[in-house]
Amino acid sequence: MAQDHDHNAPGHTHGTGNQRAVGIAAILTGGFMIAEVVGGLISGSLALIADAGHMLTDFVALSLAWFAFHLAKRPASWKATYGFDRFSVLAALVNGLSLFLIAAWICFEAIKRLNEPVEVLGGTMLLIAVGGLIVNILAFWILTRGEKDNLNIKAALLHVAGDLLGSVGAIIASLVIIYTGWTPIDPILSVFVAIIILRSAWHVVRESGHILLEGAPRDFDRRKLIQELEAELSGVIKVRHVHAWSITQERPMITLEVDVNEDADTDQVKIAVKTLLKERFNIAHSTVEINQYSQKQGSELKS
């Protein structure tokens, strides 16, 4: 019997690019949030106030994402043997769930505003909304410099994208109010933005929840792996107890047992299994246990 681990997975090294991008986006979002709160109160615009509330939670979410990247740099310890990478997945889940709360609040306020219309200053609203759009475009561009496949970056992008849509909605609403005086457009567009936010939030929550529940890595098919190992590797009798999961999206892992006949070179089989896992399934961190059996035992295992 032989057992081995490959600790040279790509996810074991962490750059500072993602953390820097999220940190700058958090500063931009938090700074302009204050201007939107003031502008929303002065103009009476729900779209601006809703967007400011969204930016507040975005600031918290982006700060949490920044801290997650910072924490992930800490080395593994005897208590946290996998390190702290998964905190970023937890942060993504929290960020995704917060988007549901934001959307619910926006819809509630919109219904209330439709039943009790208030005066909206279109000019002030337009000025603040344009400024918010510029800030959000800049923050979005900065975040796209990070690793877009990273779940934490993806959640941060969705938050900023929601803000960006909120700013666009506020600009459209302000123009309609300026030229027609029709104030219901303000809460109506706010609800439209909330629906878009909900759709995006669901994807982040579903994906991060899948990882936290130890679901199989994306595009991984255990049946296909077993079939290829048993069909292609010389000396392999049976592949059993295959368990695959992810620490983060970038760190898939797998454990499995490989039964081989007594004439097989266990070291060579192990190397072949790990090579196949890395090249065909993009899994660089694996634990492979080799069990040797006689010809008679091998026949019994196959049956």
Rank of each mutant, 00 (worst) to 15 (best):
Y293H: 15
G31S: 13
N136W: 02
R206E: 15
G39N: 00
T180Y: 15
L64W: 01
V258M: 13
E250N: 11
L175H: 04
S208W: 03
D85H: 13
D221N: 15
G39T: 07
K154G: 07
A173L: 09
W78A: 14
G209H: 03
T180M: 14
R199W: 09
I27A: 14
V204T: 13
S174K: 00
G30K: 03
V236Q: 11
I134R: 12
A68L: 07
L101H: 06
R74V: 11
W66L: 14
F192M: 06
I197Y: 02
A68N: 10
Q295L: 13
A52I: 09
H203Q: 13
A201C: 03
V242C: 05
L233H: 10
E207D: 14
L46M: 14
A231R: 12
K148C: 08
S234G: 01
V193W: 00
E207Y: 04
V236E: 12
R223K: 15
A161D: 06
T13D: 13
A161E: 09
V22R: 00
V120H: 06
V118Y: 05
T81A: 08
S246G: 11
R145W: 04
I34R: 02
I27D: 02
S43K: 07
E262C: 12
V242H: 10
I134C: 13
I42S: 08
G39W: 04
G215P: 05
A26S: 13
N261R: 03
I172G: 02
V176P: 12
L99Y: 00
S88L: 04
S234T: 11
A284T: 07
Q297R: 11
H285D: 13
F100K: 00
G96S: 03
G166W: 02
G123S: 12
I271P: 02
I111C: 15
I34K: 05
S77N: 15
N150A: 11
I290S: 13
A26T: 07
V37M: 03
A21W: 03
K148F: 08
L64H: 00
D219C: 12
V60W: 01
F84C: 11
A65D: 02
L121G: 03
R86A: 10
L138H: 05
A216K: 04
K274I: 03
T13I: 00
M33Q: 01
I172W: 02
T275Y: 12
A104M: 04
Q249P: 08
L90E: 04
A231Y: 00
R251D: 12
F220K: 11
G30Q: 01
F281R: 04
Y293P: 05
E214Q: 09
V236L: 11
S246K: 01
G181C: 08
V288C: 07
A61M: 00
C107P: 03
L276E: 09
A9W: 08
L93Y: 05
V89Q: 13
F140E: 01
S234P: 00
A50V: 10
I153D: 10
A52V: 10
L175P: 05
I290T: 14
L157I: 04
V260G: 06
K154W: 07
I211R: 08
W66I: 06
A201S: 06
G215H: 02
N136L: 06
S43A: 14
L56M: 00
G53S: 10
I24Q: 04
F67A: 08
T144P: 01
E116N: 08
V130Q: 00
T275G: 15
F192T: 01
A155T: 15
E262V: 02
G215V: 11
I283N: 14
D163H: 09
L164W: 07
I196V: 06
T287R: 00
D267P: 08
W141V: 05
